[in-house]
Design a protein around this nucleic acid. Structure first.
Lengths: 250, 250
DNA sequence: CGAAAAGTTGATTGTCTTCAAAACTGGTGG
DNA sequence: CCACCAGTTTTGAAGACAATCAACTTTTCG
């Protein structure tokens, strides 16, 4: 937003030595069933972490691509910028998810990844991942799956943006968020939004006022309780119902 | 649309022996700078073609995934279906482009690929591609780039769906189409739409009436000439201008 | 504490959708 | 070869939904 804070991190800001082998998030970002030897080799490749402070960028559009990043803690948004100043949030990423895949095609990032809260990521140098995945079949397939999953996720967003009304979009957004939080051991009814109404709106193709109004309407109707960024899902079934009913089958 | 024509092709409908090594589309779907040996090994893997008749599916959502497909001739649409009957065209693919990437994550396709005209594709069995890319580094990187390119393309569609007005969407659509056609040796001002207004609308998140009206408006204003599916771009600069001006920088 | 950022709410406007009717196209069978 | 018919496209009129503009409140953070 503010062109002032355009501070992408320089080469090696805060880097830390670590190991996947004893990482609690391994099930999320690594293939399962690796041998000790394979794990050790992966440890050798993914040897540094990087801290990213709130509102600063992990990478920015135009920067040279050299690594994928596995999120360890914190939440990110990715967002693309058009030449004319428009921008669009393309996703919100949380622990265990991978960002940076956009950079592979042209060896250059085409979107920004900005931390919504203080965060920490594992740096996975792409050329070394490539080498290693030639030897460790499970890693190769895992990488393919990660990329394919992202493609499928984006199909879902396109469906949302192309066919849904505001209420449906916000319901889908909330349901997706709690589902992912639940998978990470958080409550399935309470959540703290790490992003602004603005950012939610950008992601959902709505203006922030519409997001705010729709939150209010959901609250009035007793489906959720909203206190700023704290949301409590009171009637998840009715929220789900918003998605399956009104469909204009085009 | 008509639930009658739900005929995805069975195991081996019309298959033909072929070779990438002397294929004119190689620059589009294969890495460059391969040795003769490497090319021969790729030929061995991509050994069959398949014909797909107009309005029939190359694959459908739910089917088991086993191959990627490189389009040789013809045009496809890919489209995702929601449980509630909604559907969304996620892309239009033409010669040299790859479809099927969505199937990798869960070993199952999550969208339909339907031929908009009689078409022919090269079948690339995914497990064999995987094996070979472990040995041929250029192929591995190429595959990564293809997937990354698709992710970046979808970012662009999200920007379009999330931030653009009808005129901008249609202008972006037309400009993208001619650009890709031109890259394939076709005119940069004449094009034949292989899809209906309906399908364009689904892709652009608009109703078919809006697409039709917007075409008419462009024609009135002398930017294009439209005769059904034949479109002539008269003033490409003005069309481009639609994309760079009005931006609501959110 | 105070300024800036974020969020809420209301009134109005604009764009796209919906509903409807008619014209056109292309393929099929008499 | 022509007539017919389903699918496609165009166009109009009315309505709906979200955007815009604006004022105000609340929260956050230096």
């Amino acid at each position: 937003m503010s062109p002032a804070s355009r501070d992408s991190a320089p080469s090696l800001p805060h880097s830390i030595k670590v190991a996947c082998s004893n990482c609690s998030l391994r099930e999320l970002c690594m293939p399962v069933g690796l041998s000790d030897d394979e794990l050790a080799r992966i440890d050798a490749v993914i040897s540094t972490r990087r801290r990213v402070k709130r509102k600063t960028a992990l990478f920015r559009s135009g920067e040279k691509f050299h690594a994928l990043y596995a999120i360890r803690t914190g939440t990110f948004k990715t967002c693309v910028n058009a030449e004319d100043g428009r921008d669009q949030v393309t996703g919100f990423q949380m622990a265990g998810e991978i960002v940076g895949l956009d950079g592979i095609v042209n060896d250059q990032h085409t979107c920004d990844a900005v931390a919504l809260e203080d965060a920490e990521v594992c740096v996975m140098p792409f050329d070394r991942i490539g080498e290693l995945s030639r030897e460790v079949g499970a890693l190769q397939h895992h990488l393919h799956r990660v990329m394919s999953r992202e493609i499928v996720r984006e199909h879902g967003v396109m469906l949302l943006l192309g066919t849904m009304r505001a209420e449906e979009r916000l319901a889908a957004f909330l349901l997706n968020l709690v589902q992912r939080l639940q998978a990470r051991g958080f409550s399935r009814s309470e959540l703290v939004l790490r992003m602004t109404r603005q950012e939610i709106g950008s992601y959902l193709g709505l203006k922030l006022e519409t997001v705010s109004r729709t939150f209010s309407r959901f609250a009035e109707e007793g489906m959720i309780e909203v206190h700023q960024r704290h949301v409590r899902i009171v009637d998840i079934e009715r929220l789900r119902g918003l998605l399956s009913q009104p469909g204009s089958p085009m």
